[in-house]
């Protein structure tokens, strides 16, 4: 199973790519506490879509296993999953461990 550090590194690569299309003053910090959505979050809907797509892409490329972040299960708990980079990392770890168990 992918270690938490590997997931974190992968997510930081996602943040690097996201920042390429964001204005400098709206760059996201590579920090697990960085808020993504919600009141203090910095992502609008387009930003969230890009985060989802890039995260799916990089999980497959860098961690070797695909995950799905556009299913009902994920989208019904968007605020919780995408609250911070850290909550997203934990969710990905859970998805990957479920895949392995299954």
């Amino acid at each position: 199973m992918a270690k938490h550090e590997e997931i974190t590194r992968m997510l930081f690569n996602v943040i690097d790519e996201l920042n390429e299309i964001r204005p400098a003053e709206e760059h996201l910090e590579k920090n697990l506490a960085t808020p993504l959505t919600g009141d203090s979050g910095r992502l609008d809907s387009a930003g969230l879509i890009n985060l989802i797509v890039l995260t799916e892409q990089k999980t497959a490329e860098e961690l070797g296993r695909p995950i799905l972040l556009t299913d009902d299960r994920t989208l019904s708990q968007v605020k919780e999953v995408f609250a911070t980079l850290g909550t997203l990392a934990e969710y990905i770890q859970r998805l990957l461990s479920e895949k392995r168990d299954g």
Partner: peptide, 8 residues
């Protein structure tokens, strides 16, 4: 990427 199309 169909997801980019359907979502955004």
């Amino acid at each position: 990427n169909p997801k980019l199309w359907y979502l955004g």
